[in-house]
Design a protein around this nucleic acid. Structure first.
Length: 584
DNA sequence: GCCGTTTTCGGCCCGACTGTTTTCAGTCG
């Protein structure tokens, strides 16, 4: 047997994809639904791993939730052969084109199977042809309305609504939320869904409300100026389109069910399934109206989210943790993290000024920082290698240092640390000599070019920077840009190890397109005791407000205040800097 | 196919909505 080699790093995503495909094909086959769910659950848990499956010893893989004897063997098989026999067999039994048919919204496995068996349809093209020839109407249970829905579904699928970075969706959502909150008749109102869990990308906006006048609220909701299309409108649920192709769902429930509905519509699905399983074992039943005693039907609660969790013997779990990635187990042991809050942040340590490609003078950055309640910032402009960003030469940098020194003399209770974002060059060297870096307070290092180098070389560049005694922080360590650029092919396991060994901090870059480290690596950093710093990488003042997105990544990564260095008050952060400089 | 403060076998979340039906299956979140 030949060892199958390919680009590494993406293996987990590939295996997860294979499992999902098996699940889809089993569904088309009409297989045991629980078996299908097992594949989907395994895929989800694999996607959430921070380590590559190939690096996890075979005997340890069964410890991953949802991976048992059989799936562990299939993982081994994939790593060895690059394919899974069971999947290949399924492909032989079921036309793969049906996978695109079940991807059509409104068309599920039963319909796809029917289309295939009765009309020989093996893909979307066949289906469109059959529709135009009027052949679908020969089928049992399919009439004109269903045909129209299938056509709409195909159009929708082709349009391909992409997930958007949360930083682009949240402002829209907050705007809608505010315009609804001010309506007469609206009482409680909250975001729900993935937005409330602060997932890094969002597909639609979910809003939940209680009201004395549901019809009136719905009427005004579908008539908001930003609404371009009304998908459906009812007394308890309406859906509209805003901003091109972004769907917004508003649900209105009774006051006494608000908590249960909020819990339910916040998800995640995997988290809710776990809770309901727990409920069943306790003789309870959870639905979006409340939590009930299964036998007597007696209502135990539902007005608050806490009612649901407490009835199961659990403390309330913050939405950002609700992914079934260990939060339920932690809650059972009363061992949930005390998550970092936006108000814990005391300073921003990655900011650009007009000295390179930022738009503002340093004193303006200081004013903005104060408005955000900070006690310090580090000004970290680019270095000369980034000519396009007006990167600083040694001379310019030292000139900037003089300006900052003089500014600091005038400041009370606030401090500007003199920093730089030094470019890690293609050969792994830094863009400024160590004597210059040594005269600064805070050095951020990051990659801005040569993203496509091979893994070994890229990894070495970053580790080289970590080893440099003058570097404090590695910025946007994986280089990904949501929806635009994949993370570069870097061995994060090695980077994390190096950061731990050399006591260097890793950044959560709060820029909405970056969010890098992501939640998975942030959690891994915490596990290994690697300090994290959350920064905005601001180039204009308005970007200071991105901090909350960085904090949300930290929260999703289970980080507490103590794991994040820029929660330290000025005095303590200063002594941290001093200690580091002393240790060089 | 997974999993065990009920279980190594027998369970495995719950309801709304839609379109097609005269009582329900399929799909979705």
């Amino acid at each position: 047997m030949i060892k199958f080699t390919k680009e590494e790093g993406m293996t987990n995503q590939e295996i997860a994809k294979e499992f999902k495909r098996i699940a889809d094909l089993l569904e088309l086959k009409g297989d045991n639904p629980f078996r299908i769910r097992a594949y989907r659950r395994a895929a989800q848990n694999i996607e959430a791993l921070s380590r590559d499956l190939s690096e996890i010893p075979e005997e340890e893989r069964r410890k991953i939730p949802g991976i048992g004897k059989d799936l562990a063997a299939k993982i081994t098989e994939y790593l060895r052969d690059g394919k899974i026999g069971a999947l290949e067999e399924l492909k032989g039994e079921i036309p793969e084109g049906l996978l695109e048919v079940i991807a059509i919204p409104g068309v599920g496995p039963r319909t796809a199977k029917l289309l295939n068996e009765k009309l020989g349809i093996g893909g979307i093209d066949d289906l469109e042809k059959a529709v135009s020839e009027g052949r679908l109407l020969d089928l049992p249970g399919i009439r004109e309305k269903t045909v129209q829905n299938i056509l709409k579904g195909i159009a929708l699928l082709r349009k391909g609504r992409e997930r958007r970075p949360i930083g682009k969706v949240m402002p829209l959502a907050e705007e809608i939320l505010e315009s609804l909150r001010s309506l007469k008749g609206v009482r409680k109102i909250s975001l729900a869904g993935s937005l409330r869990r602060w997932k890094e990308t969002i597909k639609d906006i979910d809003i939940l409300a209680t009201s004395t006048d549901p019809e009136g609220v719905m009427e005004r909701f579908v008539n908001l100026p930003s609404v371009s299309e009304v998908l459906r409108k009812g007394p308890t649920r309406s859906s509209v389109i805003v901003d091109g192709d972004l769907q917004v769902d508003l649900r209105v429930v009774e006051e006494k069910s608000f908590g249960a509905a909020l819990q339910y519509f916040t998800g995640s699905k995997a988290h809710n399934i776990r809770l309901r399983e727990m409920a069943v074992r306790k003789g309870l039943k959870i639905n979006e109206y409340g939590i009930f005693n299964e036998e007597s039907g007696e209502r135990i609660g539902g007005e608050k989210e806490e009612d649901i969790y407490n009835a199961l013997g659990l403390p309330w779990i913050p939405p950002e943790l609700r992914e079934d990635l260990g939060e339920i187990e932690a809650a059972m042991k009363d061992d949930l993290p005390e998550l970092i809050e936006p108000a814990d942040i005391r300073g921003d340590l990655h900011i650009h000024s007009r000295w390179s490609d930022g738009s503002h003078e340093i004193h303006e950055l200081v004013e903005e920082a104060k408005r955000n309640g900070y006690e310090y910032i580090a000004v970290t402009d680019h270095t000369k290698g980034l000519g396009i960003a007006g990167g600083l030469t040694e001379e310019r940098l030292l000139e900037q240092k003089r300006e900052i020194d003089s500014l600091n003399r005038k400041l009370r209770g606030f401090h500007v640390f003199i920093g730089v974002e030094v470019d890690i060059r293609g050969d792994g060297s830094l863009d400024l000599p160590e004597e210059v870096l040594g005269r600064l307070d805070f050095v951020v290092a990051s990659i801005h070019s040569g993203f496509r180098q091979e893994k070994g070389k890229l990894t070495k560049r970053v580790i080289n920077a970590i080893k440099c005694p003058f570097v404090d922080l590695i910025a946007h360590p994986t280089g990904r840009l949501l929806g635009e650029r994949e993370p570069y092919d870097i061995d994060m396991e090695a980077v994390l190890e190096a950061a731990r060994n050399y006591g260097k901090a890793l950044e959560i870059n709060a820029f909405p397109m970056r969010l890098d480290l992501n939640d998975i690596y942030a959690r891994e950093a915490k596990k290994r005791g690697i300090p994290v710093i959350i920064t905005t990488d601001s180039h204009i003042l308005e970007q200071f407000r991105f901090m909350k997105y960085g904090v949300s990544v930290a929260r999703r990564g289970w980080l507490e205040k103590r794991n994040v260095l820029n929660t330290l008050p000025l005095r303590e952060f200063r002594s941290y800097i001093r200690r580091r400089r002393h240790a060089r």
